[in-house]
């Protein structure tokens, strides 16, 4: 009987450990077992992405509608080309929408915000968002500010 309780508690312990691992994977690191089915891909090129990283969120009006899949440098245009995966149910992004890189809070994570336009056409899989606004880089701002001061 004593051996039985020992074995049961060891079993519970092992189970707890694996539950913890699963929680860490799914809830904490946001690992999804299957990527959200049926998402589609959009591209956007930015002059400067600042500190944007993979898996940064893509949002519209503050609501997450997708995430950054990959970032690469376009060798011809010398701009950063960002590949975004957008949830399938968000199929109403108008063709003249603009994308900008925003920061949550003063020091927070950077993410892509999409501001819808007025066009009736919507973006589909593989389309580009042409209207983009780069990340605010603090050094640039400070530099501009100083230049203005000097030129005055």
């Amino acid at each position: 009987m004593r051996i039985r309780t020992v074995e049961i508690s060891v079993g519970i312990f092992m189970l707890l450990g694996f539950v913890a691992l699963i929680l860490l994977a799914l809830n904490v690191s946001g690992l999804t077992l299957k990527p959200k089915a049926g998402g589609y891909t959009l591209y956007a090129s930015f002059e400067n992405i600042g500190g944007l990283t993979q898996r940064a969120k893509v949002s519209m009006s503050g609501v997450q509608i997708g995430e950054v899949r990959s970032i690469r440098l376009d060798p011809q245009m010398l701009m950063a080309e960002v590949e975004m995966s957008i949830f399938a149910d968000v199929d109403f992004i108008s063709a003249d929408s603009s994308a900008m890189i925003l920061t949550s809070g003063l020091l927070g994570q950077q993410y892509i915000g999409i501001v819808p336009g007025g066009d009736m056409d919507v973006l589909g899989d593989g389309d580009f968002i042409f209207n983009t606004q780069s990340a605010l880089v603090l050094e640039d701002l400070v530099g501009k500010f100083l230049m203005n001061q000097v030129s005055e």
Binding site: L21, L24, A25, N27, V28, S29, G30, L31, R55, A56, K57, Q64, S104, G108, Q109, Y111
Partner: peptide, 19 residues
Amino acid sequence: YWANMQQAVDFREDVINGL
């Protein structure tokens, strides 16, 4: 709270390295 966390934590980089 959770979204920020999930975006910052990378499974391989953080969870596995900690393990």
